[in-house]
Nucleic acid binder design. Structure first.
Lengths: 258, 258
DNA sequence: CTTGACATTGACCTCGCGTCAGGGTTGCAA
DNA sequence: TTGCAACCCTGACGCGAGGTCAATGTCAAG
């Protein structure tokens, strides 16, 4: 007897589901086979061959519509297509490796969400003794900056790290960090504003004297300092007041916050 | 100014689409941010952090429903989950490599659709001089056999290859291959039936004398011969007639085809 | 003051099947 | 003989993760 396969036997043998085979029939990917006297589909050897090809291609990620096109292609065309698919699989492997890296990066703090040089700078801040809240505020500022103007980040980071090499700047920075929780009328704010302005002007002169190649480097010293309180100014009345005091002392050489 | 991001800026910076972000809002994966005066969504730094985490996990294949669960998990739980996801990715790589093998197998004939020993046997047939049509018919028979009773394939293949070591069997087999196109009344069919029956009986005796450990080995010699024309009998009147003649000569020791 | 890029909501489309409903068929054991 | 479990049939709806289209509102710049 010409023993033919039922849909279940075919599915089982080829490692697909019955439902998948019927789906392939509906979309015209696999031809409908003969039916037996009670309407059951009966499959011959060619169906096994076809289905194996379909399954391998589908597992490789080829869309069904494209598979039906491939099955009716001549061997040369088919070989070329297979080569292309194989290349796509190789690239997929590379992608997955990359995703593994990213995934493991999730376990390691802010690296993923910030350029590495900024992450390093934040670590410098922590080592200097900046409060965790202060570091967080800096981080948020840099995240937004990186989203809005990624091109300025490397330059600004360099400037900031250069400033942090200066002991006086570090002291001022830590003072700002502490000042966040002060009363806006605290008398120490005036002294801190004086110190800030003094450091800024001497630093600005030094920068101009040192090199004139990077033309906007001297206002950047200011901007770097401002970045520090750009965000926190909205959550800290004391730092808000402090910024105002600095602006008074600098006249309109620093433009007002809009 | 507390510069916040529009949905497009956020999407761009994080490498996702605007539509995806809105989708995450709908399914509660990412909290809806504040709106500006004209109803636009405005995102802060935390949204960037959240979205990056979502994207990395989603790219790693984690379902969104599970991601929302993960984002509110404690670090230990999160670390364990990440380890699990990473393992899944590693297995995915192995799978893809396997699929590459299968894919390349498509270019190399029947290996994928048949156990290797059967494929080798088919190559033996080609070398002996069997017509391409004859090989195809054999192949189709073995495909169906492998689908219906895979467990008998290794044994039957061994039997067949053993028979093919016999010069007389090879001659008979080639004669069958030629006879496929004969007229069913061709007088040569009788002679061929005689030869078949004679070979079968002597071979059967020899097999019984040689070893009695594999109990059903002597009827199998018959079955192996029958397999050869099991399929072709339906497409070749001459082979059909030939099978009938063999049955006459063997009496009812071979059961009738139902 | 218009133009083009961007934002809003909402409804339907895609792919590759899974799942359920509501039946008919087959084969084997009690 | 009669279960009854295990198949098979068609047809319709569901899902995940967004994409696409429509109709409308808003922003920035020449």
């Amino acid at each position: 007897m010409a023993k033919l396969l039922t849909i279940g036997q075919l599915a089982n043998h080829c490692g697909v589901t019955v439902r998948a085979i019927r789906h392939y029939h509906r979309v015209g990917l696999l031809p409908e086979p003969v039916r037996d006297h009670s309407g059951y589909r009966r499959y011959g050897a060619q169906a096994v061959v076809d289905l194996v090809r379909i399954k391998v291609l589908a597992d490789a990620g080829v869309p069904l519509a494209q598979i039906s096109h491939l099955l009716s292609a001549d061997p040369d065309e088919f070989g070329a297509a297979v080569a292309g698919i194989d290349e796509a699989l190789q690239q997929q492997i590379i992608q997955v490796e990359h995703r593994r890296q990213q995934l493991l990066g999730l376990l390691a703090g802010d690296q993923l969400v910030l350029p590495s040089e900024v992450a390093e700078m934040l670590n410098d801040l922590r080592e200097i003794g900046v409060s965790e809240q202060g570091v967080q505020i800096e981080r948020d500022g840099w995240i937004l900056l990186a989203a809005l103007s990624p091109e300025v980040v490397p330059e600004w980071t360099m400037q900031k790290r250069a400033a942090l090499d200066d002991a006086e700047f570090r002291r001022i920075y830590l003072a700002y960090d502490n000042a966040r929780d002060w009363d806006p009328n605290d008398p120490r704010l005036k002294a801190l504003a004086d110190r800030t302005v003094q450091w800024t002007t001497t630093r600005s002169d030094a920068a101009i004297g040192a090199r004139s190649d990077t033309s906007p480097s001297d206002p950047n010293v200011m901007l770097v300092a401002q970045l520090m309180d750009a965000e926190s100014a909205y959550t800290s009345p004391a730092l808000n007041r402090l910024a105002e005091l600095c602006r008074e002392r600098l006249g309109r050489s620093a433009r007002p916050a809009s």
